[in-house]
């Protein structure tokens, strides 16, 4: 079974479990939710995610987060500079392996967050990251349900687990991450003190 499918199955079973217990489970203890947030932070601040969740307008690249070559810019909508959209080089999916390990990766709607809500994750402390994720003025107006959908289903987010080439994938299994995110958000998104 390939990894996305496996992830999908894992996710489905978790959601099913959550649904079974929805008749009135006790809200997860705050401590457990805060502990779960550590996993959320690990994912959000992984190079696969944070390279595009940047302050300013210059995305990063590679596992070591170097400034994206070619002076690549966020642009007016997050889809790159006018005249050099991300799609110039980044297709709908990763290039075939025959193109070599350095071909640009691809996923649907390859882009950065738009300039109005940059969803900056890079360099934030755990409390600051936690507040940012919940802040609708920064997260694109998303409530917890929308956030959960974003991390569960967005094809560009999912790419972080199948980045292709020599890129390091997000190390936490996607299903685990989603479960932890859900645990945290179901508890109302409590933020760690430090």
């Amino acid at each position: 079974m390939n990894r996305p499918l496996r992830n999908a199955f894992g996710l489905a079973s978790l959601l099913a479990l959550a649904a079974c217990g929805s008749s009135g489970p006790p809200a997860p203890p705050k401590e457990a939710a805060i502990a779960a947030f550590a996993t959320v932070q690990q994912v959000f601040q992984h190079p696969r995610c944070q390279n595009c969740h940047i302050p300013g307008d210059a995305p990063l690249q590679f596992d070591n987060g170097l400034p994206h070559e070619m002076g690549v810019a966020r642009g007016p909508t997050g889809h790159g500079a006018q005249g050099l959209p991300c799609s110039t080089c980044h297709g709908e999916k990763n290039a075939p392996a025959s193109y070599g390990p350095h071909a640009p990766p691809g996923a649907p709607h390859w882009a950065l967050p738009p300039p109005e809500h940059k969803m900056v994750t890079i360099g934030l402390s755990a409390p600051a990251l936690c507040e940012m994720i919940k802040n609708k003025s920064e997260n694109g107006g998303r409530d917890f349900a929308a956030l959960l959908k974003h991390v569960s289903e967005d094809k560009l987010v999912l790419w972080g687990w199948e980045p292709g080439g020599n890129r390091v994938a997000v190390p936490v299994p996607h299903a685990d991450f989603v479960a932890k995110f859900k645990l945290w958000s179901d508890a109302g998104g409590p933020c760690p003190a430090t």
């Binding site: 070619m70 690549v72 810019a73 005249g83 050099l84 110039t88």
Partner: peptide, 19 residues
């Protein structure tokens, strides 16, 4: 570039032509 931005600045040109 000119299609997307008919009157580009130097910065626009840098952003679009550095590839």
């Amino acid at each position: 570039l000119l299609k997307a931005k008919p009157d580009p600045s130097d910065a626009d040109i840098d952003a679009a032509m550095s590839g």
